[in-house]
Structure formats: C-alpha cells, structure tokens
Amino acid sequence: MATFRVRVIAALSLPPALVATGCTGGGTDSGTSLPEGRQVLTQASAAMRPVKSLGFTLDTEGDPPVAVKRGDIKLLKSGDAQGTLQITQGGQPIEISFVLVGQTVHYKGVTGGYQRLPRAMVAQLYDPSALLDPERGVARLLTAATGPKTEAREKVDGKDAYRVRATLPKDVAATLVPGVTADLPGQVWVAAADHRPVKLRMEMAGTGGAGKSHVTVSLNEFDANYKITPPK
C-alpha cells in the first residue's frame, strides 16, 4: 500500500499542462499569409489569463520520462480538479480516479473505494492550480517561449488553428512538467477565432535517453461550469 500511495503522489504530480492528443485533420495552409509567431503566442497568452476552468486530455508518444501516460481531467482556477490518470506500475498500466478538493486528494485505484491524501503532499511536487495561474501556467509559458515561428494554419478538432513552433524554457516548463531539466522544442496550436491555445506538444528524449518522445496536452471546455465535490 505504501508503494501504491507513492505512485499516486507521483502521478498527481504531473502537471496538467502536459500530455494528450487533440486530433488534427483537414487541410494545411503554410502560405505567406500566416501571422507572425510572437503575435500568435502573445494573443494566446492574453486569452488564457481570464479563463476560470477548462478540461484537458493527456497522452504520450514513445516513452517520455513522465509518471502519467494518459489522463482526462477537469480543472478549476482554484486548483480543484477531478478526472482519471493512467500510470505504469510494475510495467503494467494502472488507472486512477481522483478528486482534488480544497486540502484533500481523494483517489481510487484498481480495487476498493476512495482513499485520501493531504493536498500538501501533492503540492510539494506539483500545484495543480499552476496550469491556470497567469504567472506560472500556460499563459506564462506562451510569453516565455523563444524563437516562435508560425508553421501552418490547420484544423484541430474541427477548429482553424495556427501551428507555432517554439522553444519552451526549462524554468517555466518545469512548473508544468516536474523533472524538466532542459529547454524543450515544441509546438503550440492556437485557435484562429478566439486566440485560445488548443494543443501543446513537447519533444523530449525517451526514458534513459533512448529515442524521441512527445508529451501532448489538449485543452477544451474553456470556462465550463464544473461542479467538483468530494466523492461520497
């Protein structure tokens, strides 16, 4: 049980800001009419700052050195959150359901009901509210990115979006992805209509330095009226 609790803490420590694919489909426009990359990211950062809640999905490609391989989460700006995470234990995938409310994390593994952990134990590794914090989260990451270049205009989940390649600095990325020790090349997709970021993709070396891996985060349901309450 102690080992499992450690795994849970490690799993919850991965920032929401990481992982999950939003389907990209439709045509691609890489013509000269594309807006400048810095402008796109600056608008996206401004659009993120007032957001009060959002949903995000998480996925990984390859074998990145992260605790969570998949996830589906709803988040409030207060830091309260609920969803499911998939971690690997003993080489096997394990799904965890969790509800984070106030100072308590309620979690449920493969068997049994919900158990509880103090929020402080999770916050030592990751503060979930960082994702929507204008000074630490996605909004900050977008303005801190260097060398942004708009590559194309394409569809993401049916929405027209600009794809911007940039380098994500380690000091900001580490707030969202614990364990980041180097600047990361990545891509950001920003909706053309409302300037909100809809997907982020980070590139990193696989576990043990082998091969290339990716962590992708897809953002959705901006300002949804989520009601997150402790499980009964």
Rank of each mutant, 00 (worst) to 15 (best):
Q124I: 06
T216V: 14
I87G: 03
V172N: 02
Q103A: 04
V68P: 01
G112F: 00
D29F: 12
G71F: 02
I9S: 06
K227A: 13
L85T: 06
T57E: 08
V68H: 02
T111A: 08
P64R: 08
G37A: 04
T42R: 07
K159T: 10
R116I: 08
A81T: 07
A20T: 11
E135T: 15
T88K: 07
T143E: 15
S213H: 07
E95G: 03
Q124S: 09
F56V: 00
A224W: 04
T150L: 01
G25C: 11
A224M: 01
V68T: 07
K74Q: 15
L125Q: 11
A130D: 12
D160V: 07
P128M: 01
T57W: 01
I9H: 06
R140Y: 15
L132A: 05
N225F: 00
A174Q: 11
V172I: 15
L100V: 03
T216A: 09
G31W: 01
V215T: 09
Q124D: 12
G31L: 05
A17Q: 00
H214G: 05
C23L: 12
L76Y: 07
G147T: 15
T57F: 03
A17D: 02
G71P: 01
T181R: 11
V122Q: 04
L117Q: 11
V138Q: 07
D59T: 14
V51H: 10
P185E: 03
K170D: 13
A67K: 08
A2S: 12
H195M: 10
G26H: 01
L41I: 10
I94D: 01
A120Q: 06
S129H: 03
G55K: 10
T216P: 00
V188F: 04
D171P: 01
S53Y: 10
P230V: 04
T104L: 02
T32A: 14
L34I: 04
G147I: 09
L75T: 10
T84N: 14
N220M: 08
A192S: 14
E151D: 15
P118S: 02
L176T: 05
P50L: 12
I96L: 14
V68C: 10
G147S: 15
E154I: 00
G71L: 02
V138E: 05
A152T: 08
L125E: 08
D63I: 07
